[in-house]
């Protein structure tokens, strides 16, 4: 470790830290501060009027502002949980398929899976909106070949949010598959050899060695998957506009609509604070789970 007498660390740190402070840390503080104020985004911060907890009361109150926010919060929660619950097992399956070397094609599969992660979300949204088209889209056509009737996908409040989850899984799965592959390469081969000598079958190996040793990877994956999922925005702003019947109104879309487009900066900030607090709780819980298991 170097001592600082070779030069002040601040010479090196100033560019990064001042940028992150001005453009991330100060805005976090401002978001919290604004959440206690009545403030139009069109005006300077000086025009903000202190209203105490009024914005939060509105979010939890019986008025439409509260109902819309709670619906957006619930939609985001459902979208996030479904995304994580689908992505994690699939990433393990795909990771095993890429990692194995008995059958060719693993590397090709990895390339294809990861290349979808490079595609701008906006293009993903555009393409899938056409794939989902009830009449001109190929998905319903393919389903009809195997005897499944046409699905409404994005045009029904019952299926729209889940349709967005599928789109999200398709775009993100390659990233999480690579994380799992990284985890798999860390597992010592000797563990499997020992298990085989003890007469363990393949299932026992998977649940006794592979899955437990992937735990850290999967915990990290779930944190990243949650953070990514709450950012869903492009398909909503471009295709569904939060509809039909508010079924795809999610927080990133809703906060931006309230705080930027409707210029209700104080109210939007209160929503942003609620999102931030929820994320902190979830991430702390995930890490606590990790620590608890590790101590056992």
């Amino acid at each position: 470790m170097r001592r600082s007498h070779f030069g002040s660390p601040w010479l090196m740190l100033t560019p990064a830290i001042s940028l992150i402070s001005v453009f991330i840390l100060v805005p976090i503080v401002l978001t919290v501060w604004l959440s206690f104020h009545d403030w139009s985004t069109q005006t300077g911060f000086g025009a903000a009027r202190f209203v105490g907890l009024r914005n939060y009361e509105d979010l939890f109150g019986p008025i439409s502002v509260g109902r819309d926010f709670r619906r957006a919060f619930l939609n985001t929660a459902v979208y996030t949980v479904l995304s994580v619950v689908i992505i994690l097992p699939l990433s393990v399956l795909f990771g095993l398929l890429v990692h194995q070397t008995r059958v060719a094609g693993g590397q090709v599969l990895r390339t294809i899976l990861f290349s979808t992660y490079m595609v701008p979300m906006i293009a993903v949204a555009l393409v899938w909106s056409k794939l989902y088209s009830p009449t001109e889209g190929p998905i319903n056509q393919i389903l009809s070949w195997i005897g499944i009737g046409p699905q409404p996908w994005l045009s029904s409040p019952d299926t729209a949010l889940f349709s967005l989850v599928i789109l999200n899984v398709w775009q993100q799965i390659g990233y999480f598959t690579v994380l799992v592959i990284a985890g798999l390469t860390q597992i010592p081969l000797s563990l499997y050899e020992a298990a085989r000598i003890d007469g363990a079958n393949r299932m026992q190996e998977f649940f006794g060695i592979t899955l437990p040793l992937l735990r850290r990877t999967l915990l990290f994956s779930s944190v990243i998957a949650v953070i990514n999922a709450v950012q869903v925005f492009e398909p909503v702003v471009l295709i569904t506009q939060g509809g039909p019947a508010n079924s795809t109104n999610v927080l990133t879309f809703h906060i931006r609509r309230v705080g930027i487009e409707r210029a209700q900066g104080g109210l939007g900030s209160a929503m942003a604070v609620m999102l931030m607090l929820s994320l902190i709780v979830i991430i702390v819980l995930i890490f606590a789970m990790a620590r608890q298991k590790e101590e056992r």
């Binding site: 805005p27 978001t31 925005f233 939007g268 942003a272 994320l279």
Partner: peptide, 24 residues
């Protein structure tokens, strides 16, 4: 401590700071 604060910002979705950042 400083490093931890920096890393924490990695987990922050951009929407959380969008409104004041736009004004700034």
């Amino acid at each position: 401590t400083l490093f931890a604060v920096m890393i924490a910002t990695m987990f922050l979705p951009p929407i959380v700071t969008l409104i004041p950042l736009y004004r700034l």
